[in-house]
């Protein structure tokens, strides 16, 4: 292909990527270095609120945002450098935690960012092997099932993936919270009071379970499709050579699936590092938060209508850095394979 033709072909996607990916990223990066705030003035004002029988009026000094003459309020934007990152990462508190008598990891995990990071990492790394393993197991099982049953089996196994994530999480929550039917059933069997939503670790297990249940069908579909293309001749010769079922799986099927296992792992790492729906669906904020939820909570207006845009931007930049670090080993592997093939 001539360079000119090539350029003409990729130009639209390059433009779109700059517009929708690079542009916003740069904008978020810039916003993480600035804070926009209101200009407050202190005035002595009279305020009245209802009381019983008569209103209660008080005259006192209050800080209030300066109003612009034409409506709206005055704001100012100031450059704060890495202040937002410092507020998130709290290096001083971390240093204090690891100083003698500082509380160590236990203290570290009470700082929002590290609490979120801890949960996000455990969540990602525990669900990854489970999703791949379960997906592969279902794919092998369906592949071995009688042809007539396969359609029904595929449909049934795909169902969890079709459900909207938040709705699925809510459904599981209602099954278990308070005296939900499954909790009630467990209580009846075990003859003891169970409160699954009273402690962090039980909620965490439910969240892990939910994610595996929800995403395994995706891995299953990918692996199942790949299983249809396994070289039958190789399999047959393996059988003639006396390879057992496990050996065939290990030396023929898995190597054939390997590129797709890497693909599923990549997608799953990216997806689960952005874990969010589970925190909302299971209302786990008191016990477990994720990095994405942290960004979300900064973005939501607080009781004064203020949004922490600066900290939200810093938090999303850090989330992105985290994903890149996680993906490096897998990307390097793909790159090596690519080089070898050339």
């Amino acid at each position: 292909m001539k360079p000119g033709t090539f350029a003409a072909f990729v130009a639209p996607s390059v433009v779109l990527m700059i517009l929708f990916i690079a542009g916003p990223l740069v904008s978020v990066l810039v916003q993480s270095f600035y804070v926009t705030r209101q200009v407050f003035e202190t005035t002595t004002v009279e305020n009245c609120t209802p009381g019983f029988l008569a209103p209660v009026c008080t005259t006192e000094a209050r800080s209030r945002p300066k109003q612009k003459p034409g409506g709206g309020v005055e704001t100012e934007t100031v450059f704060v450098g890495f202040e937002a990152y410092r507020l998130l990462l709290q290096p001083d508190a971390v240093a204090a935690a690891f100083a003698p008598g500082g509380g160590g990891f236990e203290r570290l995990l009470t700082i929002d960012f590290y609490k979120a990071l801890r949960f996000t990492l455990t969540f990602t790394l525990i669900t990854l092997p489970l999703v791949i393993g379960l997906g592969l197991a279902i794919a092998l099982a369906v592949d071995a099932a009688a042809k007539r049953l396969r359609g029904v089996l595929i449909f049934a196994s795909l169902l969890p993936f079709i459900i909207t994530p938040v709705i699925g999480a809510l459904a599981i929550r209602w099954l278990f919270i308070g005296d939900g039917i499954l909790t009630a059933a467990l209580e009846a069997i075990l003859q003891r009071d169970i409160a699954l939503f009273a402690e962090g670790w039980t909620i965490e297990i439910l969240m892990l379970f939910y994610r595996v249940w929800h995403v395994a069908p995706f891995a299953f579909v990918v692996f199942y499709a790949a299983l249809q293309t396994v070289d039958q001749d190789t399999l047959e010769s393996a059988i003639i050579d006396g390879a057992s079922r496990t050996e065939r799986l290990r030396y023929v099927v898995i190597p054939h699936l390997m590129p797709l296992i890497v693909f599923v792992a990549l997608i799953h790492l990216m997806d689960s590092y952005r874990v969010f729906e589970e925190v909302i669906g299971f209302s786990s904020q008191a016990h477990r938060i994720s990095l994405q939820w942290l960004t979300f909570s900064f973005l939501m207006p607080d009781e004064t209508g203020n949004r922490s845009i600066s900290r939200a931007s810093a938090s999303s930049m850090l989330t992105m850095v985290g994903i890149i670090i996680l993906l490096i080993p897998l990307l390097m592997r793909t790159w090596r394979d690519h080089r070898r093939k050339r």
Partner: peptide, 16 residues
């Protein structure tokens, strides 16, 4: 009634 008038800085901003 006067009790319903929410005054902020002397001006009525809401009606309770």
């Amino acid at each position: 009634t006067p009790n319903q008038l929410i005054r902020i800085d002397g001006r009525i901003m809401a009606v309770a």
